[in-house]
């Protein structure tokens, strides 16, 4: 491709975008709407994921040791617990500390120990964090068989339900992104196909005067890319501003709902939407053009 031809391609691309203003506008709007839907689905899924992992990270296992266990034996258990696979960290909470915490909860004035007859009824406790919430039930069952342990609590029942819910949300989320993505590709490709179809006469004449297929393709590629990029850009701008507003409102009004504000992740989504829009635009025109090049 010669330099002058790049000039022709660019000129032809812009000229035809301008001549088919309404088609161009319709295509850009289609891309924008598809991309907004895709982006919204994507962000929604990421937030669900964020919510799920926030909840999961708060899960911990409480191990209550037997009351008769000596302090030395209790401390020795730390090694055994940490050897269990999946355990990230085990914090030892001696019963004195447990009592102090309880007293604090009851208020400064009360003398809890005295009212209990000078005997601390609490056991020593290990608080255990796992690497992954999915390990929690497994770790708990391995802990239960250790010697010197009275009970293991991790919110049995609730945790299993939470885990299956978050798993389900992740699968559904991926499915939604995939489906919306496919719909977007189809919609954009169809729209661009229409613009190519409107110009098949031009393509035929170009072929007959001896234009190479690549020379014919370039303006269409450029058009597709310009349409795709413009649409995706509009979509990204809308998502950016709307999400920004949403984050501000939610953090003020319902502050207990965790909302994802990781700029890096968001910029990654924006970047991907732009790339996808541009790519689908170019691909859409290439695929549609293929048919008309066979003259």
């Amino acid at each position: 491709m010669k330099l002058s031809s790049i000039g022709y391609s660019l000129r032809d691309a812009f000229r035809s975008l301008w001549r088919n203003k309404f088609m161009t506008l319709a295509s850009v709007a289609t891309v924008a709407i598809s991309m907004v839907i895709l982006g919204a689905a994507w962000i929604l899924v990421l937030n669900t994921e964020y919510l799920a992992s926030t909840m999961e990270s708060e899960l911990e296992i409480n191990v209550y040791l037997e009351k008769e266990l000596t302090r030395d034996k209790a401390l020795e258990m730390k090694d055994k617990i940490q050897k269990i696979s999946g355990v990230e960290e085990a914090f030892f909470v001696p019963k004195e500390e447990g009592l102090e915490a309880m007293e604090e909860r009851f208020g400064e004035d009360s003398d809890l120990l005295q009212s209990l007859g000078g005997v601390n009824p609490l056991p020593d406790v290990y608080r255990i964090k796992s690497h992954d919430a999915d390990f929690v039930p497994q770790i708990a069952s391995e802990l239960a068989v250790l010697e010197g342990i009275e009970t293991v609590r991790y919110g049995q029942g609730f945790v299993e339900k939470l885990l299956s819910l978050t798993d389900w949300l992740r699968t559904v989320g991926l499915g939604v992104i995939f489906a919306v993505g496919l719909a977007a590709i189809f919609l954009i490709a169809t729209t661009i196909r229409l613009t190519v179809f409107a110009r098949r006469r031009e393509v035929t004449i170009m072929k007959l005067v001896g234009a190479t297929n690549w020379y014919i393709r370039w303006p269409f590629f450029l058009e597709g890319m310009i349409i795709g990029f413009s649409g995706a850009f509009l979509a990204v701008m809308s998502i950016y501003f709307i999400y920004d507003q949403l984050v501000q409102n939610i953090s003020v009004m319902v502050s207990f709902v965790p909302i994802m504000t990781d700029q890096e992740v968001l910029y990654n989504i924006y970047k991907n939407l732009l790339l996808m829009g541009t790519g689908i635009g170019a691909l859409g025109s290439a695929v549609s053009l293929h048919r008309f090049l066979k003259v």
Binding site: K2, S4, M206, A211, Y215
Partner: peptide, 10 residues
């Protein structure tokens, strides 16, 4: 158009 299509300089 016929000349541009076969990449003849402007």
């Amino acid at each position: 158009f016929a000349m541009e299509a076969i990449e003849i300089p402007r």
